[in-house]
Design a protein around this nucleic acid. Structure first.
Lengths: 210, 210
DNA sequence: AAATTGTTTAACAAAATTGTTAATAACGCT
DNA sequence: AGCGTTATTAACAATTTTGTTAAACAATTT
């Protein structure tokens, strides 16, 4: 059993180092040698455990992608609370999730763009779930607007607003830092403010809709 | 003079092909051979004209970066119209600019993140201009909130909201397409709707502020 | 303890990619 | 036409990076 344990830790070390390498540098920028180095193993070991760079990448991506999609579904899916409370709740949990995984959005945005073929498979599995969730959200919103005799609103745009306001600051943060320096250096502080601002903005929007 | 003309077209062809290659695949993913191929020249020619991959990259980046920053400044800088009209105007021109350069945001977000050193120089030049613009925008907003006896608002967040709402859909579009397929395929249509939605959302926000 | 299985290393092979060079061609100019 | 300059090509050098292998080593089982 001690053998397995040792393997496990080495495998894990490689996975962890690889995650960081891929997330920060993308598939093309990542180097298997530097992953091995950061994991504290020889690069032959990396190939022994994971065969190829692509395979290692796929393992990491599929794991994280599921987390991402689940989070997304949690954000969109409905509860029994009022729309206002529900929206606020969804936005905050979405924001908190990104705060815990700040590298994730940039990584996916890039990799899906530069090599969508890596994702075709996993997307196929999750698509029905996503579509269903969207339909439910749309019908709930429709019911609400009908009740108040207001115009119908495309829920995709509302969700896009939420995701944009929540995600973009994390994606754009390096730019902010480079453009503004000191004023943006305190990230956690700025992001705390962002959470409030984002919710505020969407609450205004919601009040107009219903 | 015919020589110059020939050079010019070859150089331009390389620059154009390189722009597309770098924008879609990033610095690491870009291949000088494939740039040369797409430009219809041998890859020795590419090195003859531009020496190194990095140099070629820098030329393209500095050109585009200035366009980007100028656009940004136009969005932020003030005019004599009312704040409401001004905001709407700024958002629409910002949005239209991205519509014309849809690859730009993703590219910069990526490259600044993965190799900020490429940008340090050009940023240094533009920083004072940016800071000044921000200060002016902040003071105008302060004047407005004071007039209506409302709370002060950090203009950085307002600008972040605008940029996020405008830019994110373009960055996230490949994800949308992969997740929703048909429903998102008509990009121009969706983006036209986005422009309206984005403005609408920010107008709601503005009404609360002043 | 011998055999089996799995782990590790170092050295190496293969491929891809960037960059160079030396020889040649085209061009504009006097 | 002949000269110097610039453009072009093909072959190749250098480097980087991924991937392999054979042999040594460790642990586990029988």
């Amino acid at each position: 059993m001690r053998t397995e344990k040792r393997n496990q830790t080495k495998e894990d070390a490689i996975l962890q180092a690889a995650e960081h390498e891929f997330f920060t540098k993308g598939f093309d920028g990542a180097r298997t040698t530097s992953i091995a180095k950061n994991a504290g193993v020889t690069h032959a070991m990396l190939h022994y455990y994971f065969k190829t760079k692509e395979n290692l990448f796929d393992i990491i991506v599929s794991k994280k992608f599921e987390i991402l999609v689940n989070m997304f579904l949690v954000t969109v899916s409905s509860s029994n609370l009022s729309l206002e409370v529900r929206l606020k709740e969804a936005m905050e949990s979405h924001f908190n999730f990104i705060l815990k995984n700040p590298e994730l959005p940039r990584f996916f945005v890039n990799e899906i763009y530069s090599s969508p073929e890596h994702f075709k498979l996993i997307v196929k599995i999750l698509k029905p779930k996503i579509k269903k969730t969207f339909k439910i959200a749309q019908s709930k919103l429709d019911a609400e607007t009908a009740k108040k005799h207001k115009e119908k609103v495309d829920v995709r745009h509302i969700i896009m607003d939420i995701v944009a306001l929540n995600v973009f600051p994390f994606i754009a943060y390096p730019i902010m830092q480079i453009l503004f320096g000191k004023e943006f250096i305190n990230m956690t502080n700025f992001m705390e403010q962002r959470k409030k601002e984002t919710v505020e903005t969407m609450m205004c929007r919601l009040q107009k809709i219903i």
